[in-house]
Design a protein around this nucleic acid. Sequence first.
RNA 1: GGAACCGUCGCAUAGUUCGGCCUAGUGCACCACCCUGCUAAGGUGGAGUACCCUUUACAGGGUACCGUGGGUUCAAAUCCCACCGGUUCCGCCA
Length: 422
Amino acid sequence: MIDPVLLRENPDLIKASQEARGDSVELVDEALAADSERRAAIALFEQLRSEQNVFSKKVGRAAPEEKKALLAEVQELSARVKAASAAAGEAEARFTTAIRAIGNPIIDGVPAGGEDNFVTLRTHGDTPAFDFEPRDHLELGELLGAIDMARGAKVSGARFYFLKGIGARLEIALMNMALDRALSAGFTPLITPTLVRPEIMDGTGFLGEHSDEIYYLPADDLYLTGTSEVALAGYHSDEILDLSAEPLRYAGWSTCYRREAGSGGKDTRGIIRVHQFNKLEMFAYVLPENAEAEHDRLVALQEDMLQALGLSYRVIDVAAGDLGSSAARKFDIEAWVPTQGAYRELTSTSNCTTYQARRLDIRYRTDSGKTTPVATLNGTLATTRWIVAILETHQQADGSVIVPEALRPYLGGLEKMEPLQR
RNA sequence: GGAACCGUCGCAUAGUUCGGCCUAGUGCACCACCCUGCUAAGGUGGAGUACCCUUUACAGGGUACCGUGGGUUCAAAUCCCACCGGUUCCGCCA
């Protein structure tokens, strides 16, 4: 949720943000109107209620013979208080609905427009060249006995898979490598619940326009999380944090579930886009003034990881229309996938500023003792999808795949993944 | 699935009998000052959260909040109804 004071004092800034996102600009005026109606309704109710309270005390103290007359007098006031209270409640609800529909005001410099209007901040590494016809990740995965899509479909349906043998080990190795790096960067590891209550899912902002992406279990009224960001954000909900010494940084390890509704026909081959995968997610609670520096820090950790794995990538500044409502800025890192001749997203790092924290009521105390929302950030440090880029980038003519040096300690020193013998 | 107990201003608790001296008390922790000389104790005072209004600011006034939502009433932490959550025990089970 955006800051209501900012809405009141600087509506033009929010309008400009809505414009850049391609969202409704009128919504800002609607929210402003709802705000003033709400305040008028509250003022009326509070004044009447105050009168009633005074009167009520008088009744309590009155002699029995006086009570009857006083009661007759106050009954009508009581009815008006009730009506004013209901009106104030409704006005409040209208305002909340309006303001919650407004996206997080984007940070200066975020490119306007939609999915294709991103800005490339930098690229790293040459795109790998092969003197043979490179195989795609699924062909390699099958040669190595690492990926079994057919049995995944048999057991669970399309977009499910088995990671087997070296495939299973590779994913665990990646996750462990990421965890080690997160640990040395000061993150606290956290294995999170993957089923969450509605108010947590709603608080993180995922129940908006993308709610059909989310698995829901009606019998239990619980949602399956598409990222541990949800549980990590909910972890400190309704709390007042002490961030004076340093930020709170967590590394969440969890399986992620996504319905992939609306992506029909896209990336149907292999494990690029699947219903279930594993992810190590970084999450930080920081003072709002430190959010942008923390954002850069998260991206740097991601780049270190990708470089250690010998992947070629580019870092993009995602355009406003592609941010999602909670993020004020988002940096994606996309790795080169040789057989696609394209960069594909491996990480996503969002600065949600105070937007998410305001919805989840996560605050800290300022020097003056006032409570105010913290800033939250999240970013990927490893996911199952990385296997795609690793296999394709480091493949050899015979179908074997060189293990990047940094990953070898996590695979018992293994230097090369070899195709299975037939 | 069954049963019992529980949910109060950071934490721990009192208050619910019988609605109105609850403007929600107390302890711990916290802040300021005082006293005291020795890593302690004592004294005085302050201090919940959110919102609304006034104000340049400092600050002041008001309203709400006792798990949530309804209801009764002039008046609800307290009475009534529904729901949610937690703990423990029992049953069943991978």
